[in-house]
Design a protein around this nucleic acid. Sequence first.
DNA 1: CAGACACATAAGCATGGACTTATGCGATTC
DNA 2: GAATCGCATAAGTCCATGCTTATGTGTCTG
Lengths: 104, 104
Amino acid sequence: MIENDIFRALADPTRRTIFEKLAAGGMNASALRAGMEISQPAMSQHLSVLRSAKLVREERRGRFVNYEVDPEGLALIAQWLAKYRAYWPARIEALKVLLKDMDQ
Amino acid sequence: MIENDIFRALADPTRRTIFEKLAAGGMNASALRAGMEISQPAMSQHLSVLRSAKLVREERRGRFVNYEVDPEGLALIAQWLAKYRAYWPARIEALKVLLKDMDQ
DNA sequence: CAGACACATAAGCATGGACTTATGCGATTC
DNA sequence: GAATCGCATAAGTCCATGCTTATGTGTCTG
């Protein structure tokens, strides 16, 4: 189940940090490690988990692999969230921002 | 960090099932167990995790405890998601539904 | 008030997951 | 083509986590 993969991937703070970094712009695994105190295999394993969850996608560039945010994972979270829209508070600021931005 | 609590709470499929049941209407812990093959302590522990994540809130009613969805947790997910709105695909059906429902 | 009931908490166990070190593999460079 | 580089994978270790059984706490009922 992909939904399970997504939430389990985001349950780890290191992976959320990686995702956040990629959201600011795609880069390769080595660049991601900069300033993060994480070993190369650990980074590779985290990226693998994020990839399985459709939160990140890769693109080979010679001997580098460029990683970037995969919108599919985010869309799946939005779908999950939409199921519970009946419970969203009426006037949360974040949702208003969200609304404004999505409505063209 | 509450954000961490939320994603870790949702990483467990049993807890997502519990949350989904509560989204269909508040009920007590025993009622939640119906048709779920889960022990009483396990249910209690799951509810405790969901409560810490602000995904669920409780309300004592005599010797029963009624549980219901806490909108705060959902709002926090929406806020997290909103940070990455630049990556949302333009025309995902779920987002259109979301939009329509939020826009009064 | 004694028992049953709804639920929480404690403690122990077993599995999962995040890390490590070591090694493999394809691409580039000299 | 040998060495290096960027990354993936393997295997082992350690801790977190979800379960269990046992027991505690508060509430209702006969």
